[in-house]
Design a protein around this nucleic acid. Structure first.
Lengths: 131, 131
DNA sequence: CTCCGTGCAAATACTTTGCAAAGCG
DNA sequence: CGCTTTGCAAAGTATTTGCACGGAG
């Protein structure tokens, strides 16, 4: 179980696509992008490697938006804005107490490993569309 | 579109089940619970009414945990802990600047409507199991 | 009587998995 | 050569939807 990882051009390509975008992509987006360079890749391979990367801590899942899981190669503690109109995910600044996780762990007697702070609303583009 | 809502015993029962638990239930849990009282309810009806309640603002979705959407009749701004071991969702205390949404809206030029703050880790039960 | 609400089952949408073939070391 | 990785297609899971019938106003 687990076993030693071997090199794979496809695995590399998948990881590089995730690292090379700020779009917090879906499995399908990654598949379509990698396919432009490596036409014989399959969606199953993308899913399998995403699971590997999550396991190794190379990427994180930032949750499910409109039914599809979104991934991020920026694994540090940071904050997201999710547009309810178009589903775009943006990185944003929000200064939160950096010791918050520890404090909440202590106060509630829980073993907290990480947190997600997501703001939801309309991005500029979608806010204008409404009017 | 939409039309005027009529009374329905099943709709009432679904909402009362959600209001009567602190477990942040899934559609399927609600279905099984309501079924104990109203055996001829169908899962489709649960899903349809959940959509109605969300629309009316009577409940919120707190996101997808292990592939299933979780609902909450507590619609106020509050914080959750999600156990990576058993999937339990708990309400917790975490004092965050109450004006944070407005501040982040202003700083980033976004129209923020609400936020989710989720802490992830192991609950007491699951932390012990690991050892 | 007129729509809304519902059961049922089929249809979706995304993700996971079994298997045999291909690739790395 | 032995074990990992992959393509392909089938299976799995959660959710949505079309249709005809039962129920509220």
């Amino acid at each position: 179980m687990g076993g030693v990882k071997k090199y794979s051009r496809k695995r590399e390509a998948i990881l590089e696509k995730i690292r090379g975008t700020a779009s917090h992509p879906t499995a399908d987006w990654i598949y379509e992008e990698v396919r432009k360079e490596i036409p014989d890749i399959s969606l199953g391979t993308v899913y399998r490697n995403l699971a590997v990367f999550k396991d190794e801590g190379l990427i994180i899942s930032i949750g499910v938006v409109d039914g599809q899981e979104r991934f991020d190669a920026n694994t540090g503690e940071h904050t997201h804005f999710i547009c309810l109109g178009c589903g775009d995910v943006l990185d944003i600044e929000a200064d939160i107490d950096s010791g918050l996780n520890e404090k909440v762990s202590r106060d509630n007697g829980l073993d907290i490993m990480f947190r997600h702070l997501n703001f939801y609303g309309k991005c500029k583009k979608c806010a204008n569309k409404t009017k």
